[in-house]
Amino acid sequence: MGEAAAYADYPSVRTRAMRRGARSVLVYLRTMAVFVVVWALVAHLKSNPVLLPSPLAVMQAAVDLARDLELFYHAWVSFARMLVSLAIASAIAIPLGLAMGLSRTFDRIVDPTIELLRPISGIAWIPLALFIFGVGNALPVFIMTYAGFFPILLGTVAGVRDVDRRLIDAARTMGVPQRTIVTRVVVPAALPSLMVALRLGVATSWTAVVAAELIGAPSGLGYAVEWYRELLMTPQVMAFIAMIGVLGYVCDRLARLLSDVFAPWASR
């Protein structure tokens, strides 16, 4: 009610914001249109549908793949693997990060091991993990969990360490006991940084999933891309690559949404 009334008083604010939104959509469409036209021209000149199919052929392939749900099946498989991996990674990394952030001694014991493992990218684990897990669900889940683990851990540790000292002091001067300070001050204060870390974890594990599926999984977007490449069906390859991009974007949006829900005070 109140807000509507405020808008009624300043109608220009609302229309101006809408106009700006509409204009940015237009600019976006214009840029992408230029891109597609250039692509179509080059494809036409090359006239080699295997090397560079026309935008229309890719669109057609995407529609066909969507119609028999193949596109969504592989997308769902990859997405589900990422959810499972992030859940496992968070379940280990968040408590570990809390303990490392709170206890200097624990940090000194664990941190060197973490720092020894961290430079070894998740992808470098693929050959060894292939040997241990074989081709299947376990391999991509392991690689993604590993890839997502480090950003989440480091973000949690940094979040706990960077908690504003005076917030803790404020709670102490109210006589709040130590344990309550951890649960009611340290954890919420570290939450925004944890959410940023989770977003980073989503990004790194999404990159890792494609590599892992490309090499060692019988399903998923990475597998599909490679499958159609071997069949030299380039339009399908490009449709799946686009799906990887779209889903990567959606995952990032979801992580942001999670941050807005759990740490609404962090957004400015």
């Binding site: 504003d164 005076r166 917030l167 002091d169 404020a170 709670a171 109210m174 006589g175 709040v176 006991p177 309550t180 009611r184 001050v185 919420p188 204060a189 939450l191 740490a263 005070w265 962090a266």
Partner: peptide, 24 residues
Amino acid sequence: FQDYALFPWQTVRGNIGFGLRHGP
């Protein structure tokens, strides 16, 4: 405190009641 040290995740009401809820 100088810049108040209000808990950013608590509303005004939550901040004012913080010591009552969690302290002695």
